[in-house]
Every structure is written in structure tokens, then in C-alpha cells.
Design a protein around this nucleic acid. Structure first.
Lengths: 234, 234
DNA sequence: CAAATGTAATGTGTATACAGTAATGGATTG
DNA sequence: CAATCCATTACTGTATACACATTACATTTG
């Protein structure tokens, strides 16, 4: 289905909001805004070559997503970074994934479960790599795949929101975790429960698996702060 | 700290967004928009005596809250109403509250737990009433109070979002539930677990307590639809 | 008469203007 | 020299204007 050479595609700048939302969300996910920094609307608008109107609409969305806070007459501020905040996010993630796993064991079809296992087996064959971004991406996909089996779109949506909020820390966490090993085995055990459809056991494993990560919250945010303020071109 | 009589309080119309957000959210919570209905921005703006700009900002927020969906070049549509959607929300609520209860048992101080119990005892003394809105409000407050003990602001925030999305159904659910009795006893059992700080048992009770509600999702949405389309002045 | 086409009316998308509020920096005063 | 005050600057909040997209409806066509 090619785009049949329609030259009338001068097209208005519509969809600016979506573009701005995606772009600014990306900046926020990667902490290109310093924690607590005030976001200047005109600067952002000129940088993205749009007016303030779509920028403000996007910022309003991002505020509800948890990436911005908003103070009337002062504007939008980038999210903070604190160990407590990170731990809270991991705890929420654990709560969602635990429940979703139990539902997945009830509702996933045999075919879906088999497919999920197959995907995991492929992705875990990354071999020894130092591309932690890829590792984190695969890890996130693994957990998302399980939650999809729960057939609960609301949980999936909530988890995706949490995931984008912790993505920055998850990379750091996985690096140090992988050094300590264990992640692979934990996933393997979870997969085995899924195969047996043992929702209770697997749910507990997932919860512990995630809670282990949350226990590093302090170190992870320390390392995160360092990267935000020192470790990049900017 | 009184507001020292500053007559210069002609004040600009600022804060329109907050006002519009609250007003439209209220409308959405109560399903004053018919399910799936397209929301007309100019009509809403004139009704609230503001321009389209703050209206759109508020609608963008509400979209992220789950009250609106958005289709580029077509605008905002009110959420629709389906049994599956309601059940998903109840499942998410159960997931959050179960995990939060366990944390509450670990983190709540003796004083906080005692206070929570006291508040519940007061509120359960409503006696025989037919003001289901009040009953639902007390129920929501009871569950919120427990989650507050978890000291996890993110979970609290997520739960509040879910609560506002299901408030309409919760009232209906409680009516039929109360007729069947049981709600009081279930809360009492949960409270007892909290007093003993038995997070595992109480968590399971909460989950079952909520899951029981979710099982009525179909009937509840049927009744809800009837009320939306027939049962009110409009 | 049904389907297709053109056109008017309705409504969204974004830029811009202007009013009002907070932030800044220098002058003034103790 | 420090604190306060005032003027200036920078930025936010909302209304409005206009371009574009969609929808509804009447007209034409097979």
C-alpha cells in the first residue's frame, strides 16, 4: 500500500501535538531535563519549530503521565529523581505484574504461552553483550509479553506508563544486576511456572524478582544522578 | 494567615484550566457524556465561559486519565462503557490494593493503624441508610486509608485514578452488594488482619473482596447503561 | 432508486496577540 | 555591606483568527 504520489501533500502542520508529545517524552524519559528544572515553553517551541499551543497541550499530557509537575502561573517542571520515588515505581510495577501473571496463567491460550516462551528463548540468546540498552529492551519486552497474556488492557497500559518512568533506571539496574548474574535464572523459573500455569508460584517469583531490583533504588539513583550531571555530551 | 483584603483581586481569568479540568472530569465521572460521544470543544467552552484553549488543555489531561479518547483531526470522545472495561479496572484495583495492604502491614505505625481502625468503626456506624452515594464514599475512603498506610504515593495516585474511573459503577455495585450483605463482614476481617499485621492473609482477603465485585461487572454495566440513557433529568 | 460526486457548513489544529504574573537586577537606604 | 524597594524583563494564561479536515447534504449520474 504505497503512498500514491499525492502532491497535494503540502499538508498542514497538524499532528504537532503528537510529535511534540513523543519528542518531549523522549527527552523526559532520558532525563535530558535536569531534575526539577523548569521547562521553558517558548524555548521548547522554537526548538521543535512549533508554537506554544501544541507544546502546552503535550506538557499537560506529560504532567498526567508523571513526567512533569505543574504549578499555576509558573509553568511545568521536570520530574525529580529520588530513591523513594524509584522504589515506589518498582513496587507498583511488582503489584501489577504479579496480578497480571496470575491472570495470564488463567487466560493465556496454549499457543500464546508457547509463543511467549519461544520469544523469550530467542531473546535470551543475546550472548555476552555490553549493549545494556538492548538488554533492557529485551527485559522490558519479556515482562510486557506476560502481561499481555492477562488480556487486561488497563493493566498493560498502567504498566507501560510505569515502564517509561523507570526505563532510565532499569538500564542502570540491569547492568549491576547482570554483573551479579541471576536475572536469567529468575526469568527461567518464571517461564517454567507459566508453562505449568502455576499463577501463585510464578506471581510470587515475579514479585520477588522485581522487589530485588527495587532494593537497589538508592544506588541506582545515585548512579543516575551522576550520569545526568556528568556523564554525557549535552 | 488571612488574605489581607487586597482589592486588586479583579484577577485575570487564570486557572481556567484547573476549573475546566475539574468541571469536565466531574461530568465524565458521572457519565454526563454519553458513552463514545464526541465532545464538542466550542460548545463546552461556551458552556464554561472560557475559550477553547483551556478546554483543550483540560481534555488532553483527561485523555491521559482515561476519561477521553483522542483521534487526531476528529477530536475528543467520551469513554465508553463495557463490562470488560469495568472488570479490567476492578482487577487493576485489586492488584494495587493487595500489594498496598502488604506494605501497609509492614510500614504503618501502631498509631496510624489504630487511627485507621477507629475511622472505619465510625463510618460503619452509618446505620441503615439508602444514601448509596454516602455509602460508596465511605467505602472508597476506607480503602484509600489502607493504601495510605503503605506510604507509597505512586500506588495511592494510581488507585485514585482508578477509583474515579469506577466511581459510577461502584455505587451501583454497592447497592446490590449491600442487599446481599457481606460487605461489612469482609471489611471487618480485613481490619482484623491489619491489626495483626498479617499482610498475606489480608491481601488475599482484599483481593477476593474486590474480585467479588468485579464478577458483577456485566450486571453493573447493564444497570449503568440504563441509568445513563433513561434514569435522569439530563 | 442507489451510488457517486461536489459543495456548504461544522469543527479541529495551530499561530499569534495581548494581558497578567513571577523573576531579575540595580538603585536606595539603614 | 546587607536588606529593601522599584523598575524592567521574561514568561505564563487565555482569547482570537485563520487554515485545514471532516461531515452532511443536495445534486447528478448510472
Amino acid at each position: 500500500m504505497q503512498k500514491t504520489a499525492k502532491p497535494k501533500k503540502t499538508a498542514r502542520a497538524a499532528d504537532s501535538v503528537e510529535k511534540v508529545y513523543d519528542a518531549v517524552k523522549e527527552l523526559a524519559v532520558e532525563y535530558r531535563f535536569k531534575p526539577g528544572e523548569r521547562v521553558n515553553e517558548v524555548e521548547l517551541a522554537t526548538r521543535l519549530s512549533v508554537s506554544r499551543t501544541p507544546v502546552r497541550e503535550a506538557l499537560n499530557r506529560l504532567a498526567r503521565d508523571g513526567f512533569m509537575s505543574f504549578v499555576p502561573n509558573r509553568g511545568f517542571y521536570a520530574r525529580d529523581i529520588t530513591p523513594e520515588g524509584v522504589q515506589e515505581l518498582y513496587e507498583l510495577r511488582a503489584a501489577i505484574e504479579r496480578a497480571a501473571f496470575r491472570l495470564a496463567c488463567q487466560r493465556g491460550t496454549d499457543a500464546e504461552i508457547a509463543e511467549t516462551i519461544a520469544i523469550w528463548q530467542n531473546n535470551s540468546n543475546l550472548g555476552p553483550t555490553t549493549d545494556w540498552a538492548k538488554v533492557a529492551e529485551a527485559d522490558e519486552a519479556f515482562h510486557i509479553a506476560i502481561v499481555m497474556l492477562s488480556k487486561n488492557g488497563r493493566m498493560l497500559n498502567a504498566l507501560e506508563g510505569v515502564n517509561s518512568l523507570i526505563r532510565f533506571f532499569r538500564r542502570i539496574d540491569l547492568e549491576s544486576n547482570r554483573r551479579r548474574g541471576g536475572t536469567y535464572d529468575e526469568h527461567a523459573a518464571i517461564i517454567e511456572c507459566l508453562r505449568r500455569r502455576d499463577g501463585d508460584a510464578g506471581g510470587e517469583l515475579i514479585e520477588r524478582h522485581i522487589t530485588l531490583s527495587s532494593a537497589h533504588a538508592v544506588e541506582v539513583t545515585k548512579e543516575g544522578l551522576a550520569r545526568i550531571f556528568f556523564g554525557r555530551p549535552d
